[in-house]
Design a protein around this nucleic acid. Sequence first.
DNA 1: GGAATTAGATACATAGTTGTAGCTAATCCT
DNA 2: AGGATTAGCTACAACTATGTATCTAATTCC
Lengths: 202, 202
Amino acid sequence: MSDHNARTRRRGGELIKAIHDAVLEEVLEVGAGRLTMDGIARRAATPRTTLYRRWSDPIEVLLDALYHQHPVEEPTPGADDLRGDLIRALRLMVEWALSPAGRAVAAILTDPRSAALMSEALFERVFANRGGTFTRTVLQHYADRGRFPAELLTPVVADIGEALVTKHLIDAGAPPTDEELAAIVDQAILPAIGLGPRAPRA
Amino acid sequence: MSDHNARTRRRGGELIKAIHDAVLEEVLEVGAGRLTMDGIARRAATPRTTLYRRWSDPIEVLLDALYHQHPVEEPTPGADDLRGDLIRALRLMVEWALSPAGRAVAAILTDPRSAALMSEALFERVFANRGGTFTRTVLQHYADRGRFPAELLTPVVADIGEALVTKHLIDAGAPPTDEELAAIVDQAILPAIGLGPRAPRA
DNA sequence: GGAATTAGATACATAGTTGTAGCTAATCCT
DNA sequence: AGGATTAGCTACAACTATGTATCTAATTCC
């Protein structure tokens, strides 16, 4: 019961969460390169001194915020619907990519300073739920059940869906529609696992 | 013959080129968000005033530099070697992506300020030689010659190669080797145009 | 209830970026 | 050769971010 409705003094976890939220908002607005302690502090409505007590520069704050982000939902393969499960997996990925955390990761990856500071640990944590897990989880599930030859599930094949979704986000600047996700599944992923270009139904 | 060996005063085109080169170097080092007139001017060894005479802020300089970049080499489909031509097309793309211009584009796309200022014209100019042309040119060539059903050459299919190369660059932080390019062609592109996962030779 | 902790409000000297201005001198053009 | 451009140089005032220091007061913990 730490948050009745009082505008009292924040402390510990509550304060840190507010700061984490602030960096993620800030990075969306100004980009990773233009993050400042000042900007973050203003947005979190806290004095800069509070930031310096915990972090030494803006990128540290950002990386820390990402590190404490909730992991993304995992795709859970359902009935016996490979095609549908793939589409759902990609939809999950789109959702993540559009979230503050997802967009912050994009900002970090192309910022020289931030990228250099990104630890192995964070890389794992962030990419485990992004780098190829969405689609791979589903494909693995159906490969294990013999719906297609397991040796076709190569690293390249596991990446096809995520790669195309990422490219769409970059090129179009907008998330792919469900039809576009379906096209990716039908025209790129399914053919690669031997379910020919003309076999939309799994 | 404007450049004997004299370290005389630069002017017009020569000066502008030096400035363009400077921004592209600068953006690689500090990122799009941390570009400053000051930094660019220092690197180009010219007073800031010279910059202000032409551009109003660092991002303008960067976008202008990109706009005047030489267009990338186009893939030229050769003998009758679809697979080889695809690999060569992707190799061209990797080359471009690693160039100053290619990396600058990546920096711009995830920087809120820069992205907002990127004009339609520049987007076209830059993406026409990137967004999907490498692989598409080759595929179109062979589709026209009936090497595979033309209706399989959808937008999604034309993007597969570029998407996977991009993803590799991001995830691995390094360019794909020739073997990896071959895997992309064999396991993702060729199956999508009906040349099954097990048919490495075109 | 009292001590320890920790957020909030200043304040400040330093440093870097920004636009602009004024002058000098090299280069181009005819 | 002479006039018009335009780069190079220097300076400056306004602003912003950086770290640090100091003091006050809210909250937590025992």
